[in-house]
């Protein structure tokens, strides 16, 4: 088991290097730092001095891969590639355009992101499974039929609509909870209610339908017939046999995203004014703060890889057939 995890971590390194190369190419090779400076400073009225100053402030004034002006190892280390890309492996993300330390920002914004994403995740999982089980229990009846119709309809609505309509109805029309913002300590709860509800609702259609398909697929298996042949009641068959088998793909599918919960949700956070990583990313995209976007890309893939490893581990926990070697 431990051996396996070590091996998986070992495999993660080439993938992270690949991600790093992709981001490096995207940010520094497709466009030169000069181009970016020109873009940031405004195309029309840009002076060469301003570009040099812009690059110096951000440390983009070095050669990309090889610094001929230096000696020894410094020829490789005093380069954009080493200082901007390789440094990320040590979580040195550098500074954002507004001068703040990105690593510090990420640390302080993780918790608010998690405060929304985690309840959405947990509550969502529960709600979807319950809905799907209900539909399967009443399969081949109108409950099931209209349930599927509802799911398809819910799937077809844009997530933006859920947010806008939710904000309008609950906060603006009924004045139940604040429309946006974030508070301290216990206060947080009242700001979280709306985004969490909306978060759960917005992916209800697709997930419920998917889980229903999984359950139905399990229902068709032979062991279900065996269970019925034992004289078990339909609800016991459903909960003890079908649910346990269908939970394997559901849980392991869900585990992948657990680490990514730290990144929060881009849209919801910016709509509700929650100071999480999602809104941080959006702000960075809007202000074209490349350093932050680069850091987030790296962090995102790191978390995804952690998610993959967790998935493998969770398989061994829920499925007795799988042993990691």
């Amino acid at each position: 088991m431990l051996n396996y995890i070590i091996r998986r971590l070992f495999y993660a390194i080439p993938i992270l290097i690949g991600v790093n190369l992709i981001t490096f190419t995207l940010f520094f090779v497709v466009n030169t730092p000069d181009d970016m400076a020109r873009m940031q400073l405004g195309i029309k009225r840009v002076t060469p001095d301003a570009i040099i100053k812009w690059k110096q402030e951000r440390g983009y004034d070095k050669p990309l891969l090889f610094n001929e002006g230096e000696q020894g190892l410094a020829q490789l280390t005093r380069t954009i590639f080493f200082e901007k890309s390789v440094a990320m492996f040590a979580f040195r993300f550098g500074r954002a355009d507004d001068g703040r330390d990105i690593a510090y920002e990420i640390k302080s914004r993780m918790m608010p992101s998690l405060a929304i994403a985690l309840p959405v995740f947990v509550l969502g999982l529960g709600v979807y499974v319950v809905f799907a089980l209900t539909m399967v229990f009443f399969r081949a009846t109108y409950v099931d039929f209209w349930g599927v119709v509802l799911c398809v309809a819910l799937m077809s609505i844009s997530s933006l609509f859920y947010i806008i309509a939710g904000q309008f109805l609950i906060s603006k029309l009924w004045h139940l909870v604040p429309i946006s913002g974030y508070g301290q300590h216990m206060d947080v709860a009242k700001f979280l209610v709306l985004p969490v509800i909306i978060g759960v609702a917005s992916s209800a259609g697709a997930n419920t339908r998917w889980y229903r398909t999984l359950f139905l697929e399990e229902m068709g298996k032979d062991y279900v017939r065996t269970a019925r042949a034992k004289g078990l009641a339909e609800s016991i068959v459903l909960f003890r046999h079908v649910l346990r088998n269908a939970l394997i793909p559901i849980l392991t599918g869900a585990v992948v995203v657990i680490p990514l919960l730290f990144l929060g949700s881009l849209i919801a956070e910016s709509f509700f004014g929650i100071p999480g990583l999602g809104s941080y990313t959006i702000d960075a995209i809007n202000s074209q703060d490349f350093a932050v976007v680069r850091a987030m890309v790296f962090l995102g893939s790191l978390l995804y890889i952690v998610g993959l490893i967790l998935t493998d581990i969770s398989y061994t926990l829920v499925d007795p057939r799988i042993r990691l070697e």
């Binding site: 298996k221 032979d222 017939r225 042949a229 003890r240 046999h241 829920v318």
Partner: peptide
């Protein structure tokens, strides 16, 4: 009345 089926591999619940 009890019943046994053709495919013992598929007829047992794999996770119990």
């Amino acid at each position: 009345i009890s019943m046994i089926f053709q495919e013992p591999m598929l007829s047992l619940n794999p996770v119990m």
